[in-house]
Simulated scan of single mutants.
Amino acid sequence: MTTESEEKKEGQKINKRRKKTPEVKNKVNRWKVAFIVLVGFIIGSITFVFVRITQVREPNYKPVPELVEKDGTPVVAIQSKKKQINALIDFYLADFQKGSDITYKFYLENEAMLNGTFEVLGHPIQFYLYFDPYVMDNGNVQLKAKSLSIGTLGLPMKEILKFVQRDYKLPSWVEVNPDDSTILLRLDQFRMQNGLFIRAEKINLVDDDIRMNIYLPKDSNAATNKSDTEEESN
């Protein structure tokens, strides 16, 4: 037979077990809640990044200009290297982007590279977009996107190009095509003083050989002769 003291001790052990059980259960529940909150935060952050990049702030009604076929005579043949072209690009973009909140860089190495940033949750994320340049028959230059470096974020090139098209201040003669991952440098739309225009002839970045021609418009001689005739008559 069990004594009263033994029964008392047994009762105390049972009470202790009953008291411990809710604490363990509460501890497990807290970990579950913390895990669910963490997963929700990660999913929410990824969703925010995707929506931020793919959203359209306003419709893009900018019409694509038709190709302008220019007749003329090549008057200056330029053969240059990447170092000189990069200096020219830096000078042009520094002046073009004055007053802009979002800036970017474009330069040539063994590939053409676009370097810029966009913000995610208030933090700037830097990206490098690499292109292969191709000279087209009409003298324009097509940049075909080939790879993207953007830290640990796995975003497709198409979405980055959409961001560039939407948020970056670009010259009117630069055409971004996210669907086929290209940027077209519309030299046929580029204007120089006195009507001079440029056509690309060759771009070989590996051998550091870049060539282009500056053309005199076909009707420039007629305009010059007309001006001379008016001066003589006066």
Rank of each mutant, 00 (worst) to 15 (best):
Y92M: 02
K98R: 03
P171Y: 03
S45P: 01
F190D: 04
I36C: 13
G122C: 02
M113N: 14
L161V: 11
T182A: 14
M1V: 09
N110G: 10
P74Y: 02
D209E: 11
E175Y: 15
I102V: 09
W173P: 02
Q126K: 14
T103H: 09
K20D: 10
G72L: 06
A222L: 12
I214H: 06
L155Q: 04
F35Y: 07
V56K: 11
D132T: 15
A94P: 00
L93K: 04
Y92K: 02
D179N: 15
G151P: 04
L93W: 11
R191W: 01
S147E: 06
K226R: 12
D219I: 08
R52C: 02
T224K: 12
D228P: 03
F96E: 00
R166T: 05
T21I: 11
K98G: 01
Y168Q: 14
E232I: 07
L88M: 06
L170W: 00
I203Q: 03
F91S: 10
Q79V: 07
L185T: 04
V206N: 01
D71A: 13
I43W: 07
L121Y: 03
N60W: 05
E7S: 11
D90H: 09
K82P: 06
G122H: 03
Q193L: 09
K83T: 05
D101M: 03
E231C: 05
N177I: 13
Q142P: 01
V33A: 08
E159T: 09
D207G: 07
N29E: 10
L148D: 04
D219Q: 11
I210D: 00
L38R: 02
L184D: 05
S100Q: 14
E230Q: 13
N177M: 11
K146W: 07
I43Y: 05
L185Y: 10
F127P: 02
D132Q: 15
R17Q: 10
Q193W: 04
F96T: 03
D71L: 14
F118Q: 07
S149D: 15
N29Q: 10
Y107C: 06
F35R: 04
N115Q: 15
E10Y: 12
L196C: 03
F48N: 04
N138R: 02
F41C: 11
L187N: 13
Y92Q: 01
F106R: 05
Q165W: 00
L67D: 02
K105A: 13
Q193G: 01
G116D: 09
Q79G: 09
V37G: 01
G154C: 01
D208V: 00
D179Y: 08
V37Q: 02
P65R: 13
G40Q: 03
T3D: 14
N115L: 14
A77Q: 05
Q55D: 05
F127E: 02
M136C: 07
R17E: 10
E69R: 09
L170A: 12
T182R: 10
M157I: 11
Y104L: 00
M192C: 05
I53R: 10
V51S: 07
Q189P: 00
D90N: 12
V39K: 01
G72T: 08
L148Y: 05
E66T: 08
K27N: 15
L184E: 07
P22N: 02
N138D: 15
W31S: 11
Q165M: 04
E232D: 08
T224G: 05
W173M: 03
E232V: 07
E231I: 12
E231S: 07
I42D: 00
F197E: 01
Y92R: 00
G154E: 08
N29A: 13
E23R: 14
